[in-house]
Structures are given as C-alpha cells and as structure tokens.
Write a protein that binds this DNA or RNA. Structure first.
Lengths: 255, 255
DNA sequence: CGACTAGTTGAGGCCAGTCAATGTTGGTGG
DNA sequence: CCACCAACATTGACTGGCCTCAACTAGTCG
C-alpha cells in the first residue's frame, strides 16, 4: 500500500495537518474508495451534499492517534490512504487491538453510543482521513434515506465483523487464528486492488498477537512454521501466500 | 426473572404464538422496559407511532429460535420477558455464544448489514418479544430524529459491548473471565430491578464456557473454587455473590 | 558506532483442555 | 407419586498448547 509523504516541520493542529478539501479537489465522487465507504450507491445530489459535509481531511504520522479513548465524540473518520489499528483499553492498563483498518474503512463507530470515544485509533503508517462530523451526517442521512441505510449497514457490518473475531478468539487454536488473519488481510487487499497473495504487514508481531489473543513469540513461531510447511513466505513483514488452499483448510473456511 | 407460562398445544406460526398487540393493551408507553429499549426519551407522538409499528408480539419456548442464521432479515426483536442467547456459527460447524440477552435488549442487529441474519438467537426460557419491522423502523426514524439517534446508539453500543468481549477473550485468564461474566449479569439484573447479588443462571455451564472461550469443566471448576474461596455461593444455577469487591478485583474492574 | 526496537528461537512451566467416572437434577410416563 | 432417563454438573488424573523467560540476531536511527 502506498504511503503519502511526511509533512515534517509543518505546524499542525493536534499533531496532524488540516487540509481544506477545496484546495485539493478531492471529493467523494472521485474518491477511489467510495465503493467501500459510506457513499456506496448514492445518487448525485446526495453525493454532492456528502462532499459538502466532508469539510476537512487530516493527515497523521505513524504512531499518532486519530482519536483517543475518552475524547468527546464528534465525527467519524473515513480512511483515504494508509492504515491504522483500533485498540481497546482496560481500566487496569491492559490493551488489546480490536481491529486493523484500511482505505475505505470508517473509524469511530463506537463513539456514537455514549458521545465519547471508547477506544483509540492509532496510525500504523502515514495516514489520511476524511472527517465526517457526525451531527451533520445524521442530519444528512435524515434527508437522504439511502445514506441512512448505508450508515445502518456500516454499523451492522462492524457488529458482524466483531462476532467473527469473537468466534476466532473463543474457539480457534493459534494456527487457525493466524491463518484467518492472513486470509482476511489478503481478501481486503484484493478488494482494494492490491495483490491478494503478496503484501507487507503494517503491524508488529506483538500487535498481531494482541489482535489474535496470542503472544508475540507464538506469532513469530507460527510464521516460521507456516514458512517451513510451504504455506507462506516470510521476510520480516513482507508476506507471500504460497498455498491459500491449505491456509483456508487450516482456517476452517473462515477466510 | 419471572417466566411467562407455556402455551402447550396452541397452534402457532413457526412454532411460536402470535399475539395481537391490541388485545393485550401492552404498548411501548407502558412497557416497563422502555428505559432500556429503543423508545428511551421519545416524545408522545413518536412513542405513539412506534406503538403502531410494533404490530405483533411473539412467544417462544425454551430452545426455539427467534431467528436463524441465513434467514432474510426483516425485523428487529425487543425482548419483553425472558432471555435468550445469540450464537455465531462457523462454516465447519463450530458454534459460539456471542451474547446473552434480557428484557429491553434488542436482537437481530447483525442482520441489517447484509439483509440476512448472520447468527441465530435461541430462547433460554420461555420468551416474549416485540417484532419491529425494520423497514418501517427506518422510515419512522427518518421522520423522528430522536428515534434515529436512539437506533444509532443501540447499534454503537452493541459494538462497544463486542469490543469488551474481545478484550475478555483475548487478554484475560479463565478466572477473570468468569468474574467479569458474573459481575456483568449482576449489573444487568440490577438495572432491571432484580437483585444484583442473587440470581438464577438461564444457561448451562457449556453455554457459559462457549461465551467465555472456556470448556464446561473449566467453568464448573471455577464455580467450585470461587465458592470455596467465599466469593460466591453456587447451588446448580442459583448464584449468590458474596464478595463483589473481590470479584471486581479479579475482573480488573471490568465489572 | 552504540542504543534501541523488532524479530527469532530454545528450554521449561503452567493453565486450561481432554478423557473419564460419578453425582445431581428435572422432566416424563407408568 | 415415584421410578426412570437424559441432560446437566462435578471432580480427578493426565496432557498439551501456549506462555514465560531468556539469549541472540538484524535492522534502524540518532
């Protein structure tokens, strides 16, 4: 996945760079991610209104939070470029990765429930997001039923996704979890026009482990074993899937 | 929690009994669960419209599905009485409990995403639900912004809930999981006007285990140990919490 | 070049799973 | 009403998968 350049030294709000959308002439209409994002299937007028709503985009550098737990909830964020992780924090400091996000994904859905973000999203690489003020989005979806429907779908799909993670964490063994993880990434890269068999992980072994409920050593060992068994080829974070059929078998057709 | 009576021998649609809401004069307005359900804080007119929408209620007996995976999605279900479990099914037949639901809870949210139910909800005891046709609900929420907001909140809170389960499954040990589970039930019974310290489990050890990512023997052993340590008193499915402070400590303040 | 982070690999331990035997409970029909 | 049966639950002995601890390597950045 291509990075956008850094913006070192540029003064910014909250460690990020605010960009007027008018300056950049990037609209939902022409966004390559629109088929994965909220505006799926909207007619011209609704799309135009949505464009108006996306008043700003923001860029973040690796490690910066797009939003943090406890912050008042004001907007959803649609990823244009780059990727991030969402982590849930326990009171005792325990932290767990709840998801990895790519272009077209919508962030911050958990904030709606209590007008406050319950988790945090952190950039895994330089990332660019569209800011969708939620009050305006609700108002707009109120005028355009198809947009409302899309919003409901996005929320519901997040629930479905979470259920699948629960299934993974609750009933699968380590090797199955990793197989599911790799196939899931493969699938999502493919949807975005990238290779389904070759990609570069944006996260550490520890972050993968956190997501899968495993320790980093276990993840590392599994990568080595999968490679030895000819399922994949690993070179640090560069992954090549060699035998997706076998992986699917391992994953119990979850991929 | 009180049961409603069985309805043995009464002919029914889909193994359940359909009741005209007019006959029973039970409306959202007078429903004791409205503060936990969708109509929270709606004004009179919206509440009235919502009443109209709830055209039927259904009763199910223990073990019957309220809806099943793969069924076309048509409606949400609000629990009036009783409880149920939601289970996710993997392609290989593996099954996992994704949640337990009580009066006031809304079921079927995962169906919105693909117009098809992705999991199933099964009655744990005789249960009575209000049927909320989703098309009409969307249309109504379109006319009443506060209802729309409530719907968004409900969806988002389900996501938050799922995140907490992921945290539990991914990073907690068996005893912590069970402590969280007990405190969560306690909290929810309390919210519904029941005792926070004495309640009767509606599910088997195996179902608890499925939800917590543990085997039934482990759950059983933990119950015994908790009892031995004076944390709880167990008599089959009857539970009494004796030392909630210690449980909370165990749970890492997740309760 | 040294400090640091990320990743790999090995040895050993422990928590939860597995297998198995036994006890308990609740619903059903004689 | 009670005997029976099946489902549910408890407990023990043993196993094994993943975790822990630790050493080492490879890259990266100031």
């Amino acid at each position: 996945m291509p990075n956008i350049g850094n913006l070192d030294g540029v003064p910014s709000v909250a460690m990020s760079t605010v960009i007027s959308i008018r300056d950049l002439k990037t609209h939902c209409m022409t966004c390559s991610m629109r088929e994965l994002c909220l505006p799926v299937g909207l007619e011209r007028e609704a799309m135009h209104q949505l464009d108006q709503l996306v008043s700003e985009r923001r860029r973040f550098k690796r490690g910066e939070p797009i939003y943090s737990a406890g912050e008042p909830f004001a907007a959803l964020y649609a990823i244009r470029l780059g990727s991030c992780k969402t982590t849930v924090l326990a009171e005792d400091g325990r932290e767990q990765v709840a998801g990895y996000h790519m272009p077209g994904d919508l962030l911050g859905l958990d904030g709606i429930g209590h007008d406050r973000h319950g988790c945090q999203s952190i950039a895994l690489e330089d990332i660019e997001v569209c800011v969708l003020p939620f009050g305006q989005l609700e108002e707009l979806s109120h005028r355009f039923p198809p947009l409302q429907k899309n919003l409901h779908r996005v929320l519901s799909r997040e629930i479905i996704r979470d259920h699948n993670v629960m299934l993974l964490l609750g009933s699968m063994r380590a090797e199955e979890r990793l197989a599911v993880f790799l196939l899931n990434l493969s699938h999502r890269y493919h949807d975005r026009g990238y290779s389904a068999t070759e990609f570069v992980l944006r996260m550490t072994r520890e972050e993968i482990g956190s997501y899968l409920g495993l320790k980093l050593e276990t993840v590392s060992r599994l990568f080595s074993r999968f490679q030895q068994e000819g399922l994949i080829q690993v070179q640090g974070r560069a992954i090549k899937l060699l035998d997706t059929a076998a992986l699917r078998q391992l994953a119990g057709q979850h991929g």
